[in-house]
């Protein structure tokens, strides 16, 4: 499956969850890349692991009319006065047709993706960015070190990337990562 089709399939599998939006798409794609060993080009962006390639794919899917993007006001102003917005995705008829074709052409790949996203959703209690984002940051740091790392180190390395991770947050998301089989925990206060 081409990368753009993988992104389309992720959107298809996730877009009916109310908490799923632009940020959680990036985080789900990040976990898919790690869990299913796909290179999706995530790098350390200020807001966490971010892939310009995935964003580019979304632009391509919008241009091709396979998905729609809707900006909804969150009803308050962000710092500086702009209306805070949430970006949500939905599938178009053409997008649904394409996903059906992908299911037929890549049945095993599609099933693995669906199973992985289901596991992610169960482990994180949904697809909310407030959980997926610190989980992605924590895993990004831990996997980059290629060695066991302590909770305090996760916070330190996170701060070096501009990521403010609280100790409690790290401990919470380690449980999510463990459930996904992405990390092993050698002691209650640390991750490996």
């Amino acid at each position: 499956m081409k990368q753009r089709d993988l992104v389309l399939s992720i959107i298809d599998l996730c877009c009916d969850r109310p908490e799923f939006g632009r940020t959680s798409l990036q985080k789900v794609a990040y976990f898919v890349s790690q869990g299913l060993h796909q290179q999706l080009g995530h790098k350390a962006h200020f807001y966490g692991p971010f892939s310009e390639d995935v964003e580019d794919d979304v632009e391509g899917l919008l241009l091709a009319g396979l998905i729609d993007e809707k900006a909804t006001s969150l009803g308050f102003q962000s710092y500086g006065g702009d209306a805070a917005k949430k970006y949500e995705y939905s599938m178009t008829d053409a997008g649904n047709e394409r996903v059906e074709a992908l299911r037929g052409a890549y049945p095993e790949e599609f099933q693995s993706l669906a199973t992985f996203i289901e596991r992610l959703e169960q482990a994180a209690g949904g697809l909310d960015q407030s959980v997926l984002s610190p989980a992605a940051k924590t895993y990004f740091i831990a996997s980059r070190e290629h060695r066991p790392v302590k909770t305090s180190e996760i916070r330190t390395f996170g701060a070096q990337l501009g990521w403010n991770l609280q100790r409690k947050q790290v401990l919470q998301v380690v449980a999510v990562l463990k459930t996904l089989g992405l990390v092993k925990q050698s002691a209650p206060a640390g991750t490996s």
């Binding site: 580019d56 632009e59 391509g60 919008l62 241009l63 091709a64 009319g65 396979l66």
Partner: peptide, 20 residues
């Protein structure tokens, strides 16, 4: 975008503007 989509159908035009 407008020029391409005026000539080609939406999906093909979209892929033409951002090809694989």
């Amino acid at each position: 975008n407008d020029a391409v989509l005026a000539k080609l159908n939406r999906t093909v035009g979209g892929f033409a503007l951002k090809p694989d």
